[in-house]
Design a protein around this nucleic acid. Structure first.
Lengths: 151, 151
DNA sequence: AGGCGTCATTTTGCACGCAAAGTAATTGAC
DNA sequence: GTCAATTACTTTGCGTGCAAAATGACGCCT
């Protein structure tokens, strides 16, 4: 009776519990879920918050610039920006000199939202409760991964 | 001229590039994108592949068991399982003795798909090209994070 | 037995994520 | 200058991810 070919066989490379990717996937989802509560006061989803952070940092950019910085697909950004516009947080205008391009900028309301958003990183850090060293290591490994998978 | 209150001010906790979560989010999306190509031969999405891995490992489970193991929401599993059923990869039956519960099991075709799936982890490892030590560290940090955010 | 709270699953509604196809405006080749 | 290739963005279609509400079955209390 060497093995037991069906259920509960010897460990396999396909075991869910050994998959790094599954852990990463679960962690990303868990984080978005954690953000959801903190962001609902701001009436933002996590991706919308990312876009606002990008714009708070650098305003008046084209959609393709925003896409590069946030790493969101253009096809994802179009409707997301429409929602931010509906909330009056941003302005979108056609670029002068190149009518294909659009320029996105933060509105006055969008700028004032930044003050409330400033509390969010601390709240998340508190919920996650991970030593700064580990957080940096994690960030570094994720960035490496993104780099390897680019394209 | 101490500061420059608008664009390009001093670094802030809201800078996108310092957000661990944004790196994690991007990495998870990049990984799913990488899986997409390898899984299209199997006609599976990444979440469907996760469910199949879970079932290959342990068959004949209820949906809530599957939900716990895969960490997918029940409301996500219902339509996902319907698609796997449409592809004849799994069988779903009402549990005897408790008609609320359903029991999910791998079909013969689902079992034969496992052989093709066995190549996937190696292909991903190759695309990612990360030292085993780093991969384990990454997995560990993600699991810690999931643990802290549980609830 | 009847009723009620709990449990397992499904449904609904909304927001991504992204490949692929579509639409304009711009650039480049000649 | 003309026209094809390219670029910037939008649209479409499908599959999640998840909160919240709905459905239906169980189990327990009396």
């Amino acid at each position: 009776m060497k093995k037991n070919k069906d259920q509960q066989g010897e460990p396999s490379a396909l075991d869910l519990d050994r998959q790094v990717c599954h852990s990463l996937y679960s962690a990303a989802n868990a984080l978005v879920r954690a953000y959801r509560q903190m962001l609902e006061k701001l009436d933002l989803t996590y991706p919308q918050y990312v876009v606002m952070m990008s714009l708070w940092q650098k305003d008046g950019v084209s959609i393709s610039n925003l896409s590069a910085h946030t790493r969101f697909d253009a096809g994802t950004l179009t409707p997301l920006l429409r929602r931010l516009q509906d909330k009056r947080l941003i302005d979108v205008k056609v670029a002068k000199g190149d009518e294909r391009r659009k320029i996105v900028s933060v509105s006055r309301q969008g700028r004032s939202l930044k003050k409330s958003a400033e509390k969010v990183p601390g709240q998340i850090a508190c919920a996650v409760d991970m030593p700064a060293e580990d957080a940096l290591k994690l960030k570094g490994l994720c960035e490496t991964l993104v780099g390897k998978l680019k394209r």
